[in-house]
Amino acid sequence: MTTEQYPKVYLYRRIVQAKLYIDKNYSEKIDLDNISDEAHFSKFHFIRLFKSIYGKTPHQYLTKVRIEKAKQLLEQGNMISAVCNLVGYDSLSTFSGLFTKAVGKSPNQYASDFRQRKKNIQEKPLAFVPKCYAFMHGWSENSNFEEVKK
């Protein structure tokens, strides 16, 4: 079986393109009706196919992408209100609620925990590396980890 011969390759390509569209445009006001139109599917058929491939509806997948991106933005030190807008939400309470439900902690707590971990890494980088690897690399408490301090 070659690439072009597997069943319904054109369907797969259209669904994958829709998924990649969400990956790229998560920060915009994505209208899932438009995506299904562009993929030349009825909305119902699109949702059914998308879920059969990715295990989530397009809307659930969009939320997942936005939350993952929000985690990255919080790790970079962005304000929560800015992160909310940057991942496509107008309402801070909606964003915070979805984030907390998905991650198990609030955006504020997530950012705080990340900052603390980063501080701990800067202070004791070797504590985050298995000792066997540190030994193999010749990393020791006396090593110069100047780059970590940045």
Binding site: I121, P125, F128, V129, H137, W139, N144, E146, E147, V148
Partner: peptide, 12 residues
Amino acid sequence: VDDIPMGPGTRW
């Protein structure tokens, strides 16, 4: 998971 600089040119 981790991207920790361990000195010049070396990362965990």
